[in-house]
């Protein structure tokens, strides 16, 4: 019988710790499929964050370094500079990437560090139990914004792709999501491009994936997907914010 669906080789056959309905599983799979398709798992070094995906080192088949909170882009920089012919990617959440790790993210981007960043934005701190994230929406209720995020008090959420797209070192900044089949297909294309850019030595590529956290949002998985659609996408529009490939084509 023909196999029509199988586990990607770069995703190890172990159960994950993610909550039911969490979209990390989908995003892991997409990254692993891309590694398989590009045939790079054997020379890839992943860098995983502190946050819900801290244990991702157990799931990806490539070599993995577990970074201190927010430092994944710096770890990746060291790894890529030491091994320029290897493929180096980070997998980071919103708190890791744009709260405690803002400096590392922005400077890796502006250096045009030839790495790939998969940025999972679910607008909340999942691992520690649902506190406000740098990307929590205005009026969003979290454990540490119990009356809703008051932007006059707690500040505004950060639109990462928009911000990074202003930097000359960035090759690709694209926001995708994984709430529907078409969106998942688009997300995979973006992730593949972000890895291909690195292989082609085009520089810093970041794919922001809008993601759900049913557990800490207090919603069922399907309600969570609807909430993402109704609330997150309007605030964080999907799309390509910068792509050196299309600029080259346009020339």
């Amino acid at each position: 019988m023909a196999v029509v669906f199988d586990r990607p080789k770069a995703l190890l056959d172990v159960p994950t710790h993610y909550c039911p309905g969490c979209t990390h599983g989908i995003i892991h799979r997409l990254v692993a499929e891309v590694m398989d398709e590009l045939g790079i798992e054997d020379r890839t070094v992943g860098v995983v964050p502190v946050g819900c995906s801290v244990l991702a080192y157990n799931y990806f088949g490539c070599d993995v370094i577990e970074a201190p909170h927010g430092r994944a882009p710096a770890i990746a920089t060291g790894a890529k500079r030491a091994l320029p012919d290897n493929v180096v990617f980070t997998y980071q959440g919103d708190g890791d990437l744009i709260a405690i790790g803002t400096a590392e993210t922005v400077h890796a981007a502006t250096r045009g560090e030839n790495i790939t960043i998969i940025f999972v934005n679910n607008a909340i701190y999942g691992m520690t139990g649902g506190q406000m994230a740098p990307t929590s929406l205005p009026n969003q209720v979290t454990q540490t914004t119990p009356y809703g995020r008051d932007v006059n008090y707690s500040g505004h959420p950060i639109r990462v792709c928009e911000m990074l797209s202003t930097l000359d070192g960035v090759a690709l900044a694209q926001r995708v999501t994984v709430d529907t089949i078409p969106h998942i297909r688009e997300a995979k294309k973006a992730i593949k491009k972000a890895f291909q850019n690195q292989i082609d030595k085009k520089g810093f590529s970041i794919v922001e994936v809008l993601s759900t956290c049913p557990t800490n949002w207090g919603l069922t998985p399907t309600e969570a997907l609807k909430w993402l659609n109704d609330n997150m996408i309007p605030h964080y529009p999907l799309g390509v914010y910068k792509d050196v490939n299309t600029r080259e084509e346009a020339k």
């Binding site: 370094i65 710096a74 770890i75 920089t77 060291g78 790894a79 500079r81 030491a82 091994l83």
Partner: peptide
Amino acid sequence: NMVQGAAAC
């Protein structure tokens, strides 16, 4: 952390 990244490799 860059040192750590290179040294880990």
